[in-house]
């Protein structure tokens, strides 16, 4: 297995700066996790509330390193034929037909059954071989020679059985296919797993990963994020809107607004050409931040007090 060396990942500070170039402002913890994952060749399990940039982290890393991103979206019922590999049945059928036609030529001159079988054995068995293998995302990532970022998204949505399937890949970067044998990664991919914590991930999987928890950012960090993503917005307004979102997060809501919502809101405020937050404006744009009617109803009467 090759190991690639990326100078972009040489130090924690370099990672922070590299990410910033691609508009991803990250906390020190995130940079440390990426740094360690690269040095230790270990997958990272990223947890945190939805919308704090878990998937984005993998995408940005792929941009930073300039290697392809292989993404596997997990869902209930996902199995190895969709995640790992599948046989190309159509081609295999054609092959058997071709073989049938050729069989006469091959066995010409053979006398008796025993000799025919003997001759048949001399030909390689390619029915189950890599030629007829259709690689799915996980196997694809193993084949990529220039290295890759493998993103296994929302692993908590998949079944328990699927988790066990991942174990071999995560610890040894290899896949066992019963008919062929073990396929080792040409270059170890850098693996990101994300989870929204809808259920507990098994200990076996956690043990193989570094664990990164991304919480909601601090006001200071979030302001930097908004500045990077929506650079056109006035500093004063940016400060106000981030403060407002933060006070919203203190409330008891069904779904708290995440970074992605803050950015959406900043963009909408920009479209509305505002330079100052006021009660009326917030009320009319609150649906950008809150995604449940009951949340909006709970927050509307509080807007005034939250603004102060």
């Amino acid at each position: 297995m090759n190991t690639l060396d990326f100078p972009q990942l040489d130090s924690i500070e370099a990672i922070e700066q590299g990410f910033e170039k691609f508009g991803y402002i990250c906390s020190h913890e995130i940079a440390t996790a990426v740094f360690l994952a690269f040095k230790l060749r270990k997958p990272i399990l990223v947890e945190g509330p939805p919308g704090v940039g878990k998937t984005e982290l993998a995408k940005t890393t792929s941009m930073l390193l300039d290697v392809p991103l292989v993404r596997l979206q997990c869902y209930e019922g996902l199995d190895e034929s969709k995640a790992l590999y599948e046989w190309k049945y159509g081609k295999q059928l054609l092959y058997t037909q071709v073989l049938k036609e050729k069989l006469g030529d091959l066995l010409q001159g053979a006398t008796g059954l025993a000799e025919s079988v003997e001759r048949l054995h001399q030909f390689g068995d390619i029915f189950y071989s890599e030629d007829f293998l259709e690689p799915r995302p996980l196997l694809k990532a193993m084949y990529l020679e220039e290295g890759s970022i493998l993103l296994i998204d929302e692993v908590d949505k998949s079944d328990y059985e699927f988790e066990s399937l991942l174990l071999e890949i995560l610890s040894d970067y290899q896949v066992s296919i019963p008919e062929i044998g073990t396929v080792k990664a040409k270059t170890a991919p850098m693996v990101f797993l994300t989870s929204n914590n809808t259920r507990d991930i098994s200990d076996a999987l956690k043990r193989r990963c570094l664990h990164l928890y991304i919480p909601f950012p601090t006001t200071e960090l979030e302001e930097r994020i908004v500045r990077a993503r929506v650079p056109e917005i006035e500093e004063d307004l940016r400060h106000q809107l981030v403060e407002f979102v933060h006070s919203l997060r203190q409330m008891d809501l069904k779904k708290l607004p995440a970074i992605s919502e803050t950015i959406d809101w900043a963009r909408s405020l920009l479209l509305l050409h505002t330079d100052q937050l006021d009660e009326e404006l917030i009320r009319s744009t609150l649906m950008v931040l809150l995604k449940f009617q009951e949340d909006i109803e709970a927050a509307t009467p509080e807007i005034k007090s939250l603004l102060d």
Partner: peptide, 27 residues
Amino acid sequence: MEVMSIIGYRSRGDLRTGLSQALAKTA
């Protein structure tokens, strides 16, 4: 241990972050 040897003892904060990522796996 590997984390410790990579990060070193220079920065307490970094070491804490790194070790917590390797050892503590829930919030």
